[in-house]
């Protein structure tokens, strides 16, 4: 078993009076693919967003390669460069071309020379079938293409971990596959991946482990086999009976 790359200990997050995360502790090992499932409002997105500090947890710790990243002295920007995130609504930058979307962060924050950044970006765009769109603006892209661009934009920073928050939920059905194919390929490349998804079939296929998050806690976790064929907790059983 490889060493953990990302760990949380008793992670808590409130929005005003609303307790959204009520103490989440989990170890993510290097190269592991972890799916997060659970009912709406259960705190899945909030958990994921805490992991790259888009939300600042109220209590608890997050360790990245053994280092506590909730420590105020840590440079958040630097940390985030190692953690890629893909959002439900793509959030590609409309004021830049496809290529510029991808090269922006590497050239600005990692000082990668423009030529090299462009080469690497083109290689990534080719991998997801967007090379011919490099000089287009995102408004010309379909939803599926935008999401593939968003994935490439994150990959361009060569992150250690990728976080996906319902990457296909905002897509028309015919585009879900092209995006899942890209993510599937990524899961085979040995990258550490956390993915919140309602695509149960996909979760079952690609995950090493499944977390069922409900009411701000991990109610149940296990291999896809365990969770999908013989769940123990009543909440899990109820949730799965509704979505499957």
């Amino acid at each position: 078993m490889t060493e953990p790359i990302l760990q949380t200990r008793n992670l808590k997050k409130n929005f005003g009076k609303l307790e959204v995360l009520k103490g989440i502790s989990v170890d993510i090992r290097k190269g592991e693919v972890v799916s997060i499932i659970g009912p709406s409002g259960g705190g899945k997105s909030t958990f994921l967003r805490c992991l790259n500090l888009l939300e600042i947890p109220d209590e608890g710790q997050i360790f990245y390669q053994g280092q506590d990243i909730t420590d105020k002295k840590l440079k958040i920007t630097k940390y985030r460069q190692g953690i890629g995130m893909v959002f439900q609504h793509f959030n590609v930058f409309p004021n830049m071309t496809v290529l510029e979307n991808v090269t922006l962060a590497p050239t600005l924050e990692k000082k990668v020379p423009a030529e090299q950044a462009k080469e690497e970006a083109m290689a990534l765009l080719t991998r997801v079938g967007l090379a011919d769109k490099a000089d287009e603006y995102p408004r010309k892209l379909s939803g599926g293409q935008k999401q593939r661009l968003a994935i490439v934009r994150a990959l361009a920073m060569k992150p250690e971990v990728m976080l996906f928050d319902e990457p296909t939920s905002a897509l028309d059905p015919e585009m879900v596959k092209e995006v899942l194919n890209v993510i599937r390929e990524l899961t085979r490349s040995g990258m550490t991946i956390l993915i919140v998804t309602h695509e149960m079939g996909f979760a079952r296929e690609v995950s090493d482990r499944v977390l069922f998050i409900c009411d701000g806690v991990i109610k149940e976790e296990g291999t896809p086999e365990q969770i999908f064929t013989c769940p123990h907790e009543p909440e899990t059983i109820k949730f799965l009976s509704m979505v499957l």
């Binding site: 790259n52 890629g84 959030n91 922006l104 934009r153 920073m157």
Partner: peptide, 27 residues
């Protein structure tokens, strides 16, 4: 400007200055 733009810009590790000058202000 859409909140998602801030989040995306931060998530790829841009500094707060670059988030503002490269992503938010141009929009």
């Amino acid at each position: 400007v859409d909140k998602g733009q801030w989040e995306a810009a931060r998530s790829i590790g841009l500094s707060e200055t670059h988030v503002m000058t490269r992503v938010i202000l141009p929009q």
